[in-house]
Design a binder for these strands. Structure first.
Length: 834
RNA sequence: GCGCAGGUGGUGGAAUUGGUAGACACGAGAGACUUAAAAUCUCUUGGCUGAAUAAGCCGUGCGGGUUCGAUUCCCGCCCCGCGCACCA
């Protein structure tokens, strides 16, 4: 019999995370336990979260969730003998620090430093197993020197260029916005009900030519081990469409217009032309007409109205007739040219041939009484008549039947796309063309707190890249950070910085005063981690090729922006010979977000954030916090913080602790149900290992809870020393990725040398997991009627006989002969009766 | 509008290949210990009928289907969430 438990509990050392957590954090630091070794001859695992912007607010428990995921995976692989790199860095350029500087005069350099120190402290107190020797910071000149270097390389290759263009502009931040930074017509940072809409301005801007890599980026998507959600988002974002370009002469002028069509199957249906209100060709088109100026003024107003509404909220289409006609290539009636607010200047050619087989065109034509001519109809003759009579718009290319031209009469539209293209090309009506929704990546920012674009403007040589030996172009110190309202960065007013000499001719020249979009800095940091402090190159290709691509990249944001840009740059690096691989990230772990307990998004302004250090200091400790966050649910789902839920996990951790304490102090001479203890140990090792491999942490933790619950029950029967010690040791190893501090302490108490991860992760033997008996479910017509406990080697005939003879089954089967008996080995018997 | 993911007890969730629905936990209820409370421990906890830890019926958003058997597969619909949104 077991020794009386009460006596033991009194002498047990209480679980005190306040004491053991700082202790082990210090040991890890002293032992340099998490340093990744370059070129070590072991399997490598490179894992990283999306590096944080070090905000003044610090991390809340929504942010620490991500680090709990990363750390569990990192510790798991380390314990499996892998050479793990788990680095950390700071995405520290950005608007909040600059806005704070405008308000308070405190330079961003200072606030950034303070904030980083705070984040670092939070991560250390969380027990994150980070290799701090690789720490990087995008606003450090030693880092942005290489961001600038990459810019000059892209510039050399023609992948960075300048262009005058209409750009979204935030009237509050006084800066340009990328398309994806405009949310419901407003700046992403100022999208409240009282905030003004984003505007459009024509400005000379720097772009990266991501469109040149559209196909390359698209081609790799199917191969990525990324969530389907992100893969489809990227595919749609790139938005490749195959179509044709038509060229039409404009009646009474020397002009020709080109238009793109991806839905060209209804070949001869086009009856009018739509041109974007801000199309550059418009003035030429109406030139010579009496009311030309009037039309241009109206078009200008239309463009402004549209921009004010913002993307996706156009409503009813608006149009202005230009007075011009295009000549129909098929010799049909002339096509009136309309200015339409739904035509986009920057997609395709900005001009569209319109037909009865497009919802927008149809609606537009009905509104303005423009002729329509359906040339494709449904199979059903009654419906076909309706389409011909323009009762509704028919767009189903997959099933639609063409009624003209002669060559395609009676054919299904979609199944003849290729033949139709050939026909159009052969007849000289059009040529094949591929267009993309994706635009080039606008990177100019009229802000101070970013990496200066390393370009010098010379009257003679134009834009000249700053030579490598003059990098970095350092940000000068500034006292007044407030924008001057001239649309330029405050850098433009630092005269002795702006005025320089041309690297080519040595004559006076001026520096570019725009800085780079923060996404530029974050598009290569994963490679910098592999060679974080190299001052001779951005990274050593040998190191990058050893560590990268990243094995696990963990984040919950940036489905298209960052995750597309980082792919783009890596493709370019491969082409430059700087890496051996095209894709930067093997597996993307895209987690959900943790909202506040009230279900709303955690934010400082709502006052509903939960501070991880507060939870730790309340006495729960980092181990309970981390374990709880992973126990909340599947990591790819959103969840809410729960202040009562963490208590349950804390109780579990306490029970693990107490279980080991009691072993330590108890009589070790008796034996109990050793076989069952060992069986559970193997079963749990298998379950936890498999679950961690598929990132199912909540079920891994619940399996550990079951194991602990079972061990408490088995303890009453007594146990032998070696079996029990092994069972507890395995428990400690399995729980270590989630609750590492407590695990180290218990590992030591159980008499093991070294840190937990220095002993190989527990293995299991499937043969040990099989029980001596099995439970067979007995169903009658699929309904559960009885259960049989039989020896594991009982044969089919015996089981079926026992099933049919069991009392409750008889009650349902009666005298009937079963029509069928289905036996699923080791699981169930289903008796089918009529 | 298009795309993607999802809908299971009072709550978070589990069921990995079509095979015992509700593991694990929270909350709630009862009890033990305590002068008392907290902590801890034990038990109960999907709904209905029932004295029952006998048995039965219902039950995984709704309606159908396939199957001996469906939370799981198929068809149609409804609802929430996310992403993209005039892309011709």
């Amino acid at each position: 019999m077991a020794a009386p438990i009460t006596g033991i509990i009194l002498s047990v050392k209480r679980y005190n995370p306040q004491e053991i957590e700082p202790k082990w954090q210090q040991v890890w630091e002293e032992k340099q336990a998490f340093i990744a070794q370059d070129f070590a001859d072991r399997p490598k695992t490179y894992i990283s979260p999306m590096f944080p912007y070090p905000s003044g607010a610090g991390m809340h428990v929504g942010h620490t969730f991500e680090h709990a995921i990363v750390d569990a995976i990192a510790r798991f692989h380390r314990a499996n003998g892998h050479n793990v790199m788990n680095p950390m860095g700071w995405d520290s350029f950005g608007l909040p620090a600059e806005n704070y500087a405008i308000k308070t005069g405190t330079p961003p350099q200072e606030t950034t430093k303070t904030n980083i120190a705070n984040f670092k402290n939070q991560l250390k107190r969380l027990g994150a197993s980070i290799d701090w020797t690789r720490e990087i910071n995008t606003s450090d000149p030693e880092y942005y020197r290489w961001t600038q270097w990459i810019f000059t390389k892209l510039f050399e290759r023609g992948l960075a260029y300048q262009k005058e263009s209409l750009q979204w502009w935030c009237p509050i931040d006084q800066t340009v916005l990328a398309n994806e930074q405009v949310v419901n017509g407003k700046c992403w940072r100022h999208d409240g009900p009282d905030d003004p809409p984003a505007e459009k301005k024509s400005i000379k801007q720097w772009f990266f030519k991501i469109t040149e890599y559209a196909d390359a980026l698209l081609d790799e998507i199917p191969e990525l081990d990324w969530p389907e959600k992100i893969k489809t988002a990227q595919t749609n974002w790139i938005g490749r469409s195959e179509g044709v370009i038509y060229t039409n002469k404009v009646k009474d002028t020397d002009l020709e217009i080109e238009s793109f069509s991806a839905h060209f199957e209804a070949i001869t249906a086009n009856t009018f032309v739509a041109i974007a209100p801000d199309h550059p060709l418009l003035p030429k088109l109406v030139d010579g007409l009496d009311n030309a100026q009037d039309i241009l003024d109206q078009a200008k107003q239309m463009a402004i109205d549209r921009d004010a509404k913002g993307p996706g909220s156009l409503g009813e289409p608006e149009g202005i007739f230009t007075g011009r006609y295009a000549l129909d290539i098929f010799g049909d009636e002339d096509l009136p040219i309309w200015i339409a607010n739904y035509a986009l200047a920057d997609y395709g050619t900005g001009i569209v041939l319109c037909s009865a087989h497009d919802e927008r065109d149809f609606e537009f034509a009905k509104k303005y009484g423009i002729r329509l001519k359906p040339t494709m109809v449904p199979v059903d003759p009654i419906e076909a008549e309706k389409v011909k009579n323009l009762e509704y718009c028919f767009t189903d290319m997959t099933n639609g039947i063409l009624i003209e031209p002669k060559a395609f009469e009676g054919k299904v539209a979609a199944s003849h796309r290729q033949e139709i293209i050939k026909f159009l090309e052969h007849e000289g009506f059009a040529r094949a063309e591929v267009k993309y929704k994706m635009r080039d990546w606008l990177i100019s920012r009229q802000r101070y707190w970013g990496a200066p674009i390393p370009i010098i403007h010379c009257d003679e040589h134009g834009a000249v890249a700053v030579p490598e030996d003059q990098l970095p172009v350092r940000l000068p110190d500034v006292k007044d950070f407030a924008p001057k309202g001239d649309g330029k960065s405050v850098l433009a007013h630092v005269e002795d910085w702006v005025n320089t000499t041309c690297p080519t001719c040595g004559k006076p020249a001026k520096r570019e005063t725009d800085t780079m979009d923060g996404y530029a800095c974050s598009s290569w940091y994963l490679l910098r981690y592999t060679d974080a402090h190299d001052d001779t190159q951005a990274w050593d290709p040998k190191l990058a090729n050893y560590w990268a691509p990243v094995d696990f990249y963990v984040g919950g944001d940036h489905a298209v922006a960052h995750l597309l840009y980082v792919r783009f740059w890596t493709h370019v690096f491969k082409d430059m010979g700087l890496t051996d691989f095209k894709e930067p990230v093997k597996k993307l772990i895209y987690h959900g977000l943790i909202a506040a307990e009230d279900g709303r998004k955690m934010s400082k302004s709502l006052g509903n954030t939960v501070d991880p250090l507060e939870i730790i200091d309340q006495g729960y400790g980092a181990d309970a916090l981390r374990t709880f966050e992973l126990f909340l649910g599947p990591i790819d789902e959103n969840s809410n913080w729960s202040s009562s839920g963490i208590g349950g996990v804390y109780r579990f951790i306490n029970r693990v602790w107490t279980l080991v304490q009691e072993f330590d102090e108890s009589d070790k001479s008796f034996t109990g149900n050793d076989a069952e203890v060992t069986r559970l140990q193997h079963k749990t090792a298998r379950k936890v290992t498999n679950d961690i491999h598929r990132q199912s942490f909540n079920t891994a933790i619940s399996a550990l809870m079951e194991y602990v619950n079972d061990l408490y029950k088995l303890k009453v029967d007594g146990f032998s020393d070696t079996t029990w010690r092994e069972a507890l040791s395995v428990l400690v190893q399995l729980v270590a990725p989630f609750a590492p501090h407590m695990s180290e302490e218990l590992w030591q108490q159980l008499g093991h040398e070294g840190l937990v991860h220095e002993t190989m992760w527990p293995e299991w033997d499937d043969a040990q997991i099989v029980e001596d008996t099995m439970t067979i479910v007995v169903q009658v017509n699929g309904k559960l009627r009885a259960k049989l406990d039989v020896a594991k080697d009982t044969d089919k005939e015996t089981i079926e006989k026992l099933a049919i003879e069991s009392e409750n089954v008889k009650a349902f089967v009666g005298d009937q002969q079963p029509a069928k008996v289905i036996y699923v080995p080791g699981k169930l018997v289903n008796i089918v009766v009529k």
